[in-house]
Amino acid sequence: MNDLRALEAFLHREAALLDDQRFEDWRDLLTGDATYWVPAAPDQPDPLDHVSLFYEDRTLLAMRIARLRHPQAHALAVPIRTSRIVGNVMAGAPLDGDVVVRSRFQIVERQGDRQRLFAGAYTHRLVPAPGGFAIRQKRVDLIDCDGLHEAIQIIL
């Protein structure tokens, strides 16, 4: 039970970093070989032979975050706000010594007068690190992963 509380606390802290737009601090939660993966199909087995909404390592995430911070990112001229809830946290079977934790999320995104909702499942592969965990992989399965999308600028 204590383990689950620790996992929940970690996921809540991660969610807060993203909602607070502390993207660099969020990236610091990642291991050196980490990947952030948002498949474009349900149950997508792999990120290399099939397109993904996001499939990024620390280098590509550094690029993404640098754009999010750039004053000439025109699609962010009207700033975006998000508020997310993470719940239904369950520990999964360990994978190659990593902790696997599954959860559900909903993110409300606001930009100007437009509001929309993202929903789906998170699967985190975590490794123990000083003060908690580091993220080896964050997989985000949107319920509309294969749907019609408008621009997605936030980190889910």
């Binding site: 474009a40 099939h50 294969d146 019609l148 408008e150």
Partner: peptide
């Protein structure tokens, strides 16, 4: 092969 992106503009 490798799926499809669908974007609405």
């Amino acid at each position: 092969a490798g799926g499809c992106f669908r974007a609405v503009q």
